[in-house]
């Protein structure tokens, strides 16, 4: 979040479980974070499961990145 405050486009990859905590931190830091939310958990996934997380999150990340670049 400090990166966003410094003007860097910094999407945060966060699991659904931790989303409320990240949002609370964002409010406290007065930042509106760009969030890429993935299902919980990430740790302990095997290769195929991890590939599924990547596949599921990639479209949102690319959309967010294109939007940030286009609006710059």
């Amino acid at each position: 979040m400090e990166l966003e405050r410094r003007g860097v486009v910094a999407p945060l990859v966060v699991t659904e479980t931790f989303l409320p905590l990240v949002q609370a931190q964002a409010r406290a830091r007065r930042v509106e974070p760009r969030l890429v939310v993935v299902p919980h958990p990430v740790g302990g996934l095997n290769e195929a499961e991890l590939a599924g997380r990547i596949e599921g999150a990639a479209a949102e990340l690319l959309r967010m990145a294109d939007e940030a670049r286009g609006g710059a």
């Binding site: 860097v8 931790f18 990430v42």
Partner: peptide, 23 residues
Amino acid sequence: AAEKDTIDWLSQRFKMVLVAVGD
């Protein structure tokens, strides 16, 4: 917490940083 030097380097060197923050 992230090292200040790391944040400084990332913010000066990069336009976009993808961050793994919470799992």
